[in-house]
């Protein structure tokens, strides 16, 4: 029983990462209709940026948590302006191919510069240590990850579902031409949305840096699961991606307790089952 609680808590922690990553992916897909394959690479670059800022500039963790997403958000804006924008009229396969290409380039460059063993980013001093919960030892940092990602997810959901800006966004998702006819600057909204999605990925990267080894491949090992999460939740559904992210983490944890060998496959089994029953995903609407 103790082991079960332990595995579920670990599942919750992993689920918070999934939620944070799939949220960005869902926002981008929802508005831009672009399958952002570079999300994993942007997450990796966020982690590397935090490491580089600490190593070369002496920038601490909490500053990195603010500055890195901002900087990566600007990179996202540039990518949208210079590259992605040209593909909106085409099948969304082209967007996928472009972002996939960007992923390969980014991973290749970081591999060339830093090798694949990666680097270690220390846990910030304020968050070292942990609490003994009786059934497991919970590192303080992991608890922080859960809290922060829940806050960020809830804030994003609030902005999108309950504010005027969010209403524009949702309207843009529904019918961008009509929205433009009302005088809203839709292209600018597209640019900022992509930038925000990328910033979220980078934010998750900074959060992950003290936990995982910072390597060029860290994104590609997590992105497959995150894509599955988005598909299960319903492509483009904000709430769907958040709940599914956490849910999938828990399902993984449960599987690791019951039958560990299946823990890497279970996500895709769930995905297949969900798609059979609800082709648009749990929270998605048929278009």
């Amino acid at each position: 029983m103790q082991a079960l609680f332990g595995q579920l808590l670990v599942g919750l922690i992993n689920g918070s990462f999934y939620a944070l990553l799939s949220l960005g992916l869902a926002i981008i897909f929802g508005l831009l209709n672009v399958v952002n394959f570079a999300h994993g690479a942007q997450y990796m670059m966020g982690a590397f940026a935090a490491w580089m800022a600490a190593t070369y500039l002496g920038v601490g963790y909490f500053w990195a948590l603010l500055l890195v997403p901002a900087a990566m958000g600007l990179v996202g804006v540039a990518v949208e302006r210079l590259l992605l924008r040209r593909l909106y009229g085409l099948d969304n396969l082209y967007g996928l191919l472009l972002t996939f290409g960007l992923t390969l380039i980014a991973e290749g460059l970081f591999h060339q510069a830093y090798g694949n063993s990666g680097s270690t980013y220390p846990v910030p001093a304020a968050l070292r240590g942990g609490v003994n919960l009786g059934f497991m030892y919970l590192p303080l940092y992991r608890a922080w990850v859960v809290v922060v990602s829940v806050v960020v997810c809830a804030a994003s959901w609030f902005v999108i579902e309950r504010t005027k800006l969010g209403a524009y966004l949702r309207a843009g998702t529904e019918n961008p031409r009509l929205l433009q006819a009302f005088g809203v600057n839709v292209p600018l909204m597209f640019t900022l949305t992509y930038g925000f999605g990328v910033a979220l990925a980078a934010f998750a990267g900074v959060m992950a840096a003290p936990v995982y080894q910072v390597t060029p491949l860290m994104g590609s090992s997590v992105i497959m699961v995150v894509f599955a999460v988005v598909v299960i939740g319903g492509m483009g559904s904000i709430a769907g991606s958040i709940f599914t992210g956490i849910g999938i983490g828990l399902v993984e944890g449960l599987t690791r307790y019951l039958y560990p060998e299946a823990s890497s496959v279970v996500v895709f089994v769930v995905m297949a089952l969900v798609l059979l029953v609800r082709p648009a995903g749990l929270f998605g609407r048929q278009r």
Binding site: Q2, A3, G6, Q7, V10, G11, I13, N14, M136, Y137, R142, V211, Y212, Q213, M218, S221, V222, G253, R256, P260, S263, S264
Partner: peptide, 14 residues
């Protein structure tokens, strides 16, 4: 492909 080892380490710990 595994980056998170916490669940395996928890088993080792218990």
């Amino acid at each position: 492909g595994t980056t998170d080892f916490s669940s395996y380490l928890l088993q080792a710990q218990s």
